[in-house]
Structures are given as structure tokens and as C-alpha cells.
Design a protein around this nucleic acid. Structure first.
Lengths: 333, 333
DNA sequence: TTGTAGGCGTTATCAG
DNA sequence: CTGATAACGCCTACAA
């Protein structure tokens, strides 16, 4: 690979000049610029990004940490971030945390070690304190889908309490009184906030919340499956179930059908996230829209604004909304 | 951030010694090693990966190029690659090509510019010749889900012709004779190979292939939707449709239901890929299993073997298999 | 086993 | 506007 040095020699100028034409900022006489550009073309020169980073201590790349690489939720999130950033000429370096504290920390350190200009992270296992400490470091950190009060300027999050509220409210308004709830792991903030919203909706309508109608799932299809099976085995009486995410809802739906439920007549099912395939389930899933793709875009804009001085409007908190489809119907005696 | 220089000073040894204890290869007396390790701990030292890369021209990171970040197919693929590589202490840098020639080339150059030790790429728009030329470069290139004869040692691919054959064979065996086919874009090798397999199965059973029963979709839900609608509008008579991937199958399924078809009694639908949510469709989708997650693992092993000298067994060509579920039934008059 | 010194490809600070 | 020259943080012969 040709180096800047060979280019300078061929063009008959100094290293510094070549560097200047690459970075377009400093003034260079047109005539010399052209000499250099011709030389670059002739040698098929491509700057070495690693060397640039080392010398300038900035990499034009931002690190992304997600829990998993698969799954529709993270897919949409990454896609949102990447397309926004790419349009701005930045690149992403993606790694995973698997919702485990050690791995999340490990991933963050890896990203910082690669001298990313900033990090956009989706972390679930790590504590608020750790994040606050981290934010004192040199690398700017931005959180997506998590709200930490002390860092609120660096967060893009969803009002999950509201989402949980809307989900259950809809069911109550349809006449349901016995509503089961399949939650996500409680250490995850989104899961616990959704549950809080659920309880608020119940309370507001004078419906008692029972621990027996709560199952803690894993946010995966299996969790929905097991949750519904749990309720059935316990002979719980319920006409509706809200699942804290769509994957669990699809698991619950499958389990319900296997147990002979007519859907939605004998059981209303509410999801959460509005991931792409909910529209292809049968019946189509009624769910809460989680605009994670837009949030990804916004997180990227936040980086562009704070790290690269672009002028952009930032919205820190997104509001979920109800998507009415066919998996919820009014309570039928 | 502390540098190797500060560590060496604190430990009272030279730069080189510190470097040695980091890289664990050269011999260092236990006593000195411990001095160094203590110093590193005290300073919270973390090596600067960028500087390491520049000096050693190797980065312990491999570049991954996928078409899209979202979508179940790429999710499974990335997850497979990443978990294998991470277990070996390597990291991935992911970027996208969006199935467009320019962007694919751009992504590849970005990755090479970041001095990745190797690339695992899923490219669709770029030509075989380009790839062959690319492989002469310094950075080892490995292809996933694409077979280029001249580069077969560097490919991990699926026998798509066989998959297409199996799909249609199943339908024929169930008594179907009028089989519509919704293909993917023909410039994509997997799409065209699947179609070839389809034709072979037909020919083998003396069934004529008609251009009218072929629709070229986009590999997305919309393509399936539009494809089925196209056939219906054209008043094509058919009892089964094979879709070249599951996303189109789900689109076709939705469209069919909207047009009043009883599934699967009035229309059998065959998918391809066996992506995760096919199991949650109703009826559950009969499809061809594409072991893309395993292929991701294998691609990673190929890198580990060829670039990092691990001893591993490599399987270059994977075979698809039929997954019988409920969306296909025997032909009913 | 340990230390010295040159180099990896750029950027950035000074002079000129 | 352009050219030396010193970083950037680490690796790696080569010496000792």
C-alpha cells in the first residue's frame, strides 16, 4: 500500500502538504493540490486509518454496544444508528454485551481502546454508578433505551412506564378484569418500568394487582411460552395477557393455540415493541410501538451534535403509542 | 490514559519488557513480570489498540460486511461469527453494503483501511472478478453464503440449488402441479440458484415451467405480498407457491389470507431460510433450513485457522434440509 | 533475560 | 502557502 511519503515524493512536495490536501482544511495552492491529487490517483493511495487515528487521536468511528446482534429489536436499532452515521461519513464499530455485567464492561473497554470518538451503548447489567463514573472519562458516552437521571443529556430513552400503562389501559377499557402479565427480567429497567405502568393502569381502574398473575420471563419466545403455560397450570382465571415484549407475546400466542384457545375470542394478547413480524402473526398482534429505529437515528444525531459539532435538534425522550390490530378484543363472557 | 512508558518507569524496567509481559510470548523472569503487572494494575493501564495495530500491522479484529444490520438472516449470521471469534479473543468490526456495488466496495475498503486481520464478507452486487482481484491483496478475504469457484477455499456457502430443488420436490410429491414461484432478485446468486433447483425438480417430474408463474420479488415481505397479488390479478391457476425466502413467504401468507384463502387447504406455501419467526406464523411455515448461524461459526473458524493458525476442521459447503410444518398440505381438488 | 533504538503512517506545530 | 520535525503508543530486531 502506498504511503503518504511516496505520494509526496511523486508529487514533489512535502509530507505536510499531502496531509493538507487530504484534510481539506488548510489552504493549499490549486496548482500544488492538483499535483498531489494526481499523484494520489496514480499510486492508488488510500490513507491508513489506523495511523490517522493514532496521530490525531480521533477515529471518525463510534462504538456501538448492543446486547445481541440478532433479534429484530437490536437490528432496527443498529440500522437506525448506522444509516444516520454513515450519511455523515462516520463509521460504527459494533460489539456485544449479552446483558452480562462483565461482558458489557469488557465491550465498553474494547471500544474505548479502539479510540472511538464516542460510544452509543445499550447496557442492561451495568449499574448507574458505573455509567456515571464512565462518563467522566475522555470518551463521550451516550445511552440508548435507558435513562439515567444524572446523565439525562446523554440519554435517548422511551417512556416505558407510559407504554406499560397504555397496554393495560387498553385491555381494561375492553372490559378485561383478569389480566395476566408476563414481564421481562426485573433488573432490566425497561422491564420494570413497563410493569410499573401496568400496575398504574390497574390501580386507576380499581383493579387489584395479584402476584399470582405475574410471571417473570426472559424477553424471548420461550419466556412467553413458559409464562402462559405457568398460568394455565396454576389454573389462573384470566381473559387477557400482556407480554412485556413481542417475542414473548408470540411465544404466548403459540402456547395458547396449542392449548386450544381461540384467538382472540378466548384470550386477548397484548405485545410490546411492535417489531416487524408482529404484523405477520395471526391474529396480527396488538402492541405498543417502540420507535427504536428512530431512537437509533436520534442517538446518532446526538453524537453528531455533541462530538462533531453539527447543528441538530435532539429529542431525548420518546413516547410509545398503542398499535391496535387483531389480537385484542373486548371481554366476552 | 497511562502509556506503556509510564508503566515501565513505575516498574523500573524498559519499554520492551512491559511489551513482553503484555504479549505473553517472550520469556520474562517471574519477578520482573510481577513488578510490571503490579505497575499496570496501579496505573489502570490498558494498551492502546490503535498503536498496537500500527506497530504490529495486525489488529486482532476482523471485518464483517453484511448487506443489512437488521433482518433475522443477517442477525443470525453476525451472531454466529461474533460468538466464535469472541471466544477466541478476537473482535469484529461490522459494516454494511446494502447490496449496492459502490457501497459494498466502500465497506470493504473501510475495513481494509482499519487494518483488519481478515474480512468475512457477504456481498451480492460485486462481481466475481472483483473478488478474485481483491483476494490477491494483503488482507485475506473470506466469503460467506457465496461460492466463487476460483476462491472456493475461502468460501462458506450453502447448496442453494439443492434447497430450491427440495422445496419444489416436496410440493410435487404432495400432488401439486401448478406451482407458482416468487423469486429473489436474479443478480443475487442465491436467488438464481434456488430458482434453478426449482426448475430441476419440475423437470424431473415432467412438469412444464411457465414464465407466467414466476414473479421476481425483492426478498422482503412486500415482495411476497406483491408477488401473490400479481398471480391473483393475472388469474393464474395455482395450488401452491414457493417463495425464495421466508420474509416473502410471510408476505404472501398475509396477502393470501386477505384474499380469502384458507391456509393451507386452498394454498400451500413454502418458504426458505427457516428464520426464527417462521415457527410463530400461522400456519407454521414449512420451509428450507438455511443453517446460517452455523455457517457464521464456520466462517469464523476458517479465519481462525487460516489467519491465526488454529487447528480446525472446515466444512465449506452446507446442505439445506426441508423443515416440514403446517403451511404445506397435499393437493386437494 | 533485559535494554536500546528504529519504525509503523499520519497529524500538528513551528518556522520560513 | 509550504516544509521540517517532533509527537502518537507500541512492536521488534539487535545488542548486551
Amino acid at each position: 500500500m502506498a504511503t503518504i511519503y511516496e505520494v509526496s515524493e511523486l508529487a514533489g512536495v512535502s509530507l505536510a502538504t499531502v496531509s493538507r490536501v487530504m484534510n481539506k482544511n488548510a489552504k493549499v495552492r490549486d496548482k500544488t493540490r492538483i499535483k498531489v491529487e494526481v499523484a494520489m490517483k496514480e499510486l492508488g493511495y488510500r490513507p491508513n486509518a489506523i495511523a490517522q487515528s493514532l496521530a490525531s487521536s480521533r477515529s471518525n468511528s463510534i462504538g456501538i454496544l448492543v446486547s445481541e446482534l440478532h433479534g429484530p429489536f437490536f437490528g432496527q436499532m443498529m440500522a437506525g444508528i448506522e444509516s444516520e452515521l454513515r450519511a455523515a461519513g462516520k463509521h460504527v464499530i459494533i460489539t456485544t454485551g449479552h446483558s452480562e455485567e462483565d461482558k458489557e464492561k469488557d465491550g465498553i473497554e474494547f471500544l474505548i481502546g479502539r479510540s472511538c470518538d464516542a460510544l452509543i451503548i445499550h447496557v442492561e447489567a451495568v449499574s448507574d454508578e458505573y455509567l456515571i463514573e464512565l462518563s467522566k472519562g475522555k470518551t463521550p458516552i451516550f445511552l440508548i433505551s435507558r435513562h439515567v437521571e444524572a446523565l439525562s443529556e446523554n440519554c435517548i430513552s422511551l417512556d416505558d412506564e407510559l407504554g406499560g400503562y397504555l397496554a393495560t389501559k387498553k385491555l381494561v377499557e375492553q372490559g378485561h378484569k383478569n389480566i395476566a402479565y408476563i414481564s421481562g427480567p426485573q433488573f432490566k429497567a425497561d422491564a420494570s418500568n413497563r410493569l410499573i405502568g401496568h400496575k398504574r393502569a390497574l390501580a386507576e381502574h380499581d383493579i387489584q394487582f395479584y402476584e399470582d398473575s405475574l410471571y417473570i420471563g426472559d424477553f424471548k419466545e420461550t419466556g412467553g411460552n413458559e409464562g402462559l403455560k405457568h398460568f394455565i397450570d396454576k389454573k389462573l382465571s384470566f381473559s387477557a395477557v400482556v407480554c412485556a415484549n413481542d417475542e414473548m407475546a408470540s411465544g404466548a400466542m403459540k402456547c395458547a393455540r396449542e392449548h386450544g384457545f381461540e384467538l382472540p375470542e378466548q384470550l386477548s394478547i397484548m405485545g410490546y415493541d411492535n417489531i416487524i413480524f408482529t404484523n405477520y402473526l395471526y391474529p396480527k398482534l396488538t402492541t405498543i410501538d417502540n420507535p427504536i429505529n428512530e431512537m437509533g437515528h436520534m442517538a446518532a444525531k446526538l453524537v453528531l451534535k455533541n462530538v462533531y459539532q453539527k447543528k441538530l435538534e435532539i429529542k431525548h425522550i420518546f413516547e410509545p403509542s398503542l398499535i391496535s390490530r387483531n389480537s385484542v378484543t373486548s371481554f366476552q363472557q
